[in-house]
Simulated scan of single mutants.
Amino acid sequence: MEDILQKIRVDINEDIFLKDPFSSDLGKEIIQQSVYMMIELGFEHFNFKKLSGRIGCTETAIYRYFENKHKLLLFLTSWYWGYLEQNLVFGTANLPDARKKLEIAIQILVKGPIFTKNDFIDPLTLKSLLTDEATKAIMTKEVDAEYQKGFFNHYHKLGERISKIILEINPAFEYPKTLVSTVMESSFMQSYYAKHLPGLTEHQPGDDRKIDFFHNLVFKTIENEN
């Protein structure tokens, strides 16, 4: 199973990029180095001029792949959620027990992918980046137009898939999408708080008890719904 997901390439909405970065060695280098540089510098201080200096190419060459750094971050964010969906599909294949499927879904959302090797992007390094920067891909003035273009489809599809698992457990539960999106966002935020604003959480970086918190939150919410 690990070998299958290692070679899986997540399809990204073609309106996000100008040229498929995985179609060339330069494009692959742009993706790889941008992840490292955004972690190192932060999204605000990252730009294509600095990226071109790191890679050893011109800024113009990078602009042939992405219109701007926002679109690059959208690409990375979309890829991550798409990869998590693939993890969920493979991780729950042939599992008849909906509760066990939901436990795996929670683990994937909170800890990241089960299958951690991929030939295109290092998913664990990408998770580290998105812990700090993922909200900056969504919290923009352009979000409504980008939503209409389908830029967040991978995010949506993962949420839909987990929502259906919740309804297998409790078909009468009224807010499966709300519950799932809360976990998707707050799992990142709790990791962010642990790293940067520790006074806002009991969790520490790398603390596995965070899964217990979200497990209890989800299952008690579902089970207490009348």
Rank of each mutant, 00 (worst) to 15 (best):
E202T: 11
D97P: 13
L84H: 01
K117H: 08
T125V: 14
H203P: 00
L88D: 06
N87E: 05
I162D: 13
L88W: 10
I108E: 00
F17V: 02
N87Q: 07
Q32A: 12
F115N: 08
G150Q: 09
I114N: 11
A98S: 14
Q204I: 06
T135F: 09
C57Q: 00
N94Y: 11
S187M: 02
D3G: 05
P198C: 00
L76H: 11
Q148M: 15
Y155G: 02
W79M: 12
L158R: 04
M37L: 11
S23N: 06
W81V: 15
N87L: 08
K69L: 12
V180N: 04
S186L: 14
S187W: 01
P96G: 10
K49M: 07
G91S: 03
A61Q: 09
L130W: 11
Y63V: 04
T116A: 07
K7F: 10
D132T: 10
P123I: 08
L200F: 08
K210L: 15
E174Y: 04
E160W: 07
F188H: 02
P113S: 07
G82L: 13
V10E: 07
P96C: 06
E2R: 05
L109K: 02
I104G: 05
G206N: 02
L217G: 05
S186D: 13
W81A: 10
I166R: 05
N118T: 01
R99I: 14
Y147D: 15
F152D: 11
K50R: 15
R54A: 14
D25P: 10
H196Q: 11
F48L: 10
F17I: 01
M38F: 10
E44W: 08
Y36N: 03
I114S: 13
T201V: 00
K220I: 12
L167Y: 15
Q107A: 04
A134E: 09
D25Y: 06
I8P: 02
F152R: 07
